[in-house]
């Protein structure tokens, strides 16, 4: 076989870099949606590659629910400093204080859905015309239909039945005033690809992904971390376990798995043997069959 072919990771990398450069040239004011999770870290790493030796020419944007893991915020601030780029923060707490949204009630209350309003508000305030996300098509069935360049109407909504056809590598990012786009450069990556690439490139990720001792409580078949937001039921008990997180969302709803995987090698091996999808531990996705699609239509990440 000739040596002039790319392996799958190099091909995915090249595709993502191409898309990031398209975003930069087709839009006035793009941002990377940075959650501190591995997918947005990966997108940021790829953006570094796309514009090297120049620095990333646009800001990172974080929608802060106020229910973060402290490690995530530390990691975010370190990343910003190293890259020398600006950070835009949208605060869900402020949206609540301003009466834009109301806090959910009850034991399983989360701020997950509230993020949509905050996100759309900061997009509008900052005149962002393209928000680059780390969404992947293998994550969830509603995401499987997502385009690389995904149009949002003036209400920030997605219309999955009426998407622009996307052919070859010709991306159409044209929009009318008030509308915006979401771009998903790692659409074609699977969870396994992400880990294999993070390992190959030795990308720095938050310590939460590695197995560590933590105070947790058993809830809905997963280990929910102890935090100042946690409301215990009488029959629930806090225990210390060695766990790691497969995805990072709010500390109130992100469950961990018991694990001994404390290096990237061990994580990659563990993930390759996993028999559950990564979002299986996220109570936000368990609410109904179409929970993700419903949120996405409204403007979710």
């Amino acid at each position: 076989m000739s040596k002039y072919y790319l392996n799958y990771l190099d091909e995915l990398e090249s595709e993502a870099i191409f898309i990031l450069r398209e975003v930069w040239t087709q839009f006035e004011n793009p941002v990377i949606l940075f959650s501190g999770g591995k997918d947005s870290i990966l997108v940021t790493h790829l953006a570094k590659k796309a514009f090297y030796p120049a620095k990333i020419p646009f800001p990172l944007m974080h929608v802060d629910t106020g229910h973060n893991f402290p490690e995530t915020i530390e990691f975010r601030d370190k990343t910003i400093k190293n890259l020398g780029v600006d950070l835009i923060v949208g605060s869900v707490q402020e949206s609540i204080n301003d009466g834009r949204v109301a806090e959910e009630k009850g034991k399983n209350a989360t701020r997950n859905a509230l993020q949509i309003t905050t996100l759309l508000d900061v997009i509008e305030e900052n005149k962002v015309d393209c928000a680059i996300g780390g969404g992947r098509r293998d994550e969830e069935k509603a995401r499987a239909k997502e385009r690389f360049f995904s149009h949002r109407n003036e209400f920030g909504q997605w219309d999955p039945k009426n998407q622009r056809p996307e052919l070859w590598n010709l991306f159409n990012g044209k929009y009318f005033q008030g509308e915006h786009f979401r771009a998903f450069p790692i659409s074609n990556w699977t969870e396994m690809d992400v880990w294999n690439y993070i390992k190959r490139e030795n990308i720095d990720i938050p310590s939460l992904y590695f197995a560590h001792e933590r105070e947790v409580v058993r809830r809905d078949g997963t280990w929910i971390p102890n935090s100042k937001f946690l409301k215990l039921d009488p029959n629930e008990e806090i225990v210390t376990k060695k766990i790691r997180f497969r995805t990072l969302g709010d500390i109130t709803i992100t469950g961990g798995d018991e694990s001994d995987a404390d290096t990237l090698e061990k994580i990659a091996i563990e993930v390759s043997g996993m028999r559950q999808t990564e979002r299986g531990n996220r109570s936000d996705d368990k609410r109904s069959e179409s929970a993700m699609e419903d949120r996405k239509r409204q403007g979710y990440f």
Binding site: A142, A144, K145, P160, E289, E293
Partner: peptide, 25 residues
């Protein structure tokens, strides 16, 4: 994929699937 399809039992657009074997993605 999407809810409309699940409800109507039809596929309406292009959807992408991924799988990997020891030989290829």
């Amino acid at each position: 994929g999407l809810r409309d399809e699940r409800e109507q039992g039809i596929t309406i657009d292009v959807a992408y699937r991924y799988f990997t074997t020891p030989k290829r993605k």
